[in-house]
Design a protein around this nucleic acid. Structure first.
Length: 554
RNA sequence: GCUCCCGUAGUUUAAUGGAUAGAACAGAAGACUUCUAAUCUUCUAAUGCAGGUUCGAUUCCUGCCGGGGGCACCA
């Protein structure tokens, strides 16, 4: 529709004397009261005529009226010369019929046209806690994956995990000292104890042994890694996320080093015993790729990872989702990758999200100042359990609903804002069950389902073509869902969906409060039920894209 | 010091260069014999400062102020 309107306006501009109108935009106005589509052409082109933008608008509208599209019911001029278009109710009811017919697939697009895409996100480190920062990365990465999948991409999910390095050595050292400690505690013990130079030396020794796969530590190390990974899997299951590929740092070092050495002359240089990449030439900074002990750093491993990923899954696009603290690091590595493998670099996109911070400052697993994902979900779940305790539900239902609502509340709080921004995580402030929250959307969805159930009981038919009422704002929002999905995909920004669903849910809840939907004596009832069905579908599909469960009762 | 990102009601935040800056929470007042009140209705309240570009700036540019990240052998 947008395209048709744009073409028409361009034609009209040619008619009134603009040879080559290149600056024509048609958008949804910010406020539904201005109509469904709006164009600012009169403001843009008024300078080229000796007339006010309002007069030009008048002239254009009189031309537009002559060739009015059947889907457009009304054309108006408002403000300083905006031309506003309102959609005909027949068009809207047809759209609603389409939504109900498509169901689960409503909103799908094919803008990515089966593009092979690998998305890396979450990246927790074995031997350390899976904390709320990982939860943030996972929530955003999973939502992005789902959104681009819905837009036609062929997605593989990947997780890259640091199973070697000093943090592992610290944990192993702690475990050797205190075999009864959990791995998280063992890590904290190692981290604190390393202040002692003698212990630090022991940890470095352990680190070296792990790199060399020393048999004396092999068993303990393997046990710890396995335990961590199994625990991560439990969390992934609860978050309804999964990975197709797992990559480990222990597998990326060797070849990474070789790569750097191969390109040593051309791209890298020796400096103070290390092999570095001088980023200054490109407005970046210098980073070490091979340290003076001859070991590959994270930078070198990252280069290798790009290759390994491509070997596993020959991608058209590789998306890496991380927190924004590594932005500058990533630019340098990307530049080096570009000089070595320009084709891979071109396909690689870094998407960074904000950091989850505590009001007291940065989280640190070293000092034990972390909130684990598990404890957060558990605590939220407890609060919800209290809320559902007096509902007429079975214990099993209560348990399931509490879990779903807890996950929904947490994920929503992460996805409701532009993903680049930090979240200062304050339990009471950040997690809400009311208003702009996950449970609000979930509740609205169950409400719609409950209406539909009643309609079924009372045998109210659904009739989309009944034109006894003027279209409400609900319908005028419903047809936009695919556009929202598309934009969220193009910009890798799930929060457009969040904002949209919130607006839709708000309209539906007002509608629900004002009008009785299921009413066999009301001739409009079938139409209202039809709208309710469409709302339920869009909420369900939208929540699925965000990775937020949509319970049927709550 | 260099560099990147960010400053919107009391708080958390939205706004492809457009119209009266949109929500939510908190605060004040109201609405359940009704399809689930995790809801709805009404009110109070915001673009850090100073310039510039533009018909039009929260958005783009410059400077300042404030906050955060990064800047050599950690990951």
């Amino acid at each position: 529709m947008k395209k048709e309107l744009k073409n028409l306006i361009e034609e009209m501009l040619k008619k009134v004397g603009i040879q080559n109108p290149t600056n024509v935009s048609v958008e949804h106005p910010a406020d539904l009261s201005y109509g469904d589509y709006s164009s600012n052409v009169a403001l843009v082109y008024s300078k080229e005529f000796a007339m006010s933008s309002n007069d030009l608008a008048l002239k254009l509208v009189s031309e537009l009226e002559k060739e009015r599209l059947p889907e457009i019911e009304k054309i108006e001029i408002a403000g300083r010369g905006f031309i506003n278009f309102s959609l005909a109710s027949s068009f809207l009811s047809k759209t609603i019929a389409g939504i109900n017919k498509n169901g689960d697939t409503y909103g799908k697009t094919n803008i990515f046209n089966k593009e092979k895409t690998i998305v890396e996100y979450t990246d927790p480190n074995p031997f350390k806690e899976f904390h709320i920062g990982h939860l943030m990365s996972n929530t955003i990465g999973e939502a992005i994956s789902r959104v681009i999948e819905y837009n036609g991409a062929e997605v593989k999910r990947a997780c890259y995990q640091g199973d070697v390095g000093l943090h592992v050595a610290k944990a192993v050292w702690g475990k050797l000292k205190n075999p009864d400690a959990s791995w998280g505690e063992a890590y904290a013990l190692g981290a604190i104890s390393q202040a002692d130079a003698r212990i630090k030396a022991e940890i470095i020794d352990i680190n070296q042994k792990i790199y060399e796969k020393d048999p004396s530590l092999f068993l303990l190390y393997g046990e710890g890694k396995k335990e961590s990974l199994e625990k991560f899997e439990e969390i992934y299951k609860r978050l309804e996320t999964h990975f197709d590929y797992y990559f480990f740092e222990s597998d990326t070092g060797k070849f990474g080093k070789k790569l750097v050495e191969k390109y040593k002359e051309k791209i890298f240089e020796k400096s103070e015993g290390a092999v570095v990449f001088k980023g200054e030439k490109y407005g970046l900074h210098t980073r070490v790729f091979i340290n003076s002990q001859g070991l590959p750093t994270y930078e070198a491993k990252e280069l290798d990872l790009a290759k390994i990923k491509y070997e596993k899954y020959p991608y058209d696009k590789s998306i890496v989702v991380t927190a924004n603290e590594v932005n500058e690091y990533f630019k340098v590595v990307h530049k080096a990758l570009e000089l070595m493998f320009p084709d891979l670099a071109k396909k690689t996109i870094h998407i960074s999200h904000g950091m989850l911070r505590l009001p007291e400052g940065k989280m640190s697993s070293r000092t034990g100042k972390v909130i684990t994902a598990e404890s957060l979900i558990g605590e939220v779940k407890e609060r919800i359990k209290e809320k559902v305790s007096d509902r007429k539900l079975t214990e099993e239902e209560k348990e399931k609903i509490s879990e779903q609502v807890a996950i929904g509340a947490i994920k929503y709080s992460i996805l409701k804002q532009t993903s680049g921004k930090d979240i200062i995580f304050d339990f009471d402030k950040s997690l809400s069950f009311e208003g702009d929250s996950g449970p609000y959307l979930q509740y609205t969805h169950t409400r719609a389902l409950s209406v539909l159930n009643k309609a079924k009981e009372e045998k109210i038919p659904q009739n989309t073509y009944l034109e006894v009422r003027l279209p409400s704002n609900i319908e005028r929002l419903l047809y936009r869902f695919p556009e929202i999905v598309e934009r969220a995909g193009r910009e890798y920004e799930p929060h457009y969906i969040t904002t949209y669903l919130m607006e839709l849910a708000g309209l539906f809840n007002s509608f629900y409060a004002k009008e009785k939907i299921v009413d066999s004596s009301d001739p409009q009832s079938p139409y209202k039920v039809t709208i309710t069905n469409a709302v339920a579908i869009v909420l369900k599909n939208g929540l699925a894209l965000l990775g937020i469960p949509a319970p049927e009762k709550m």
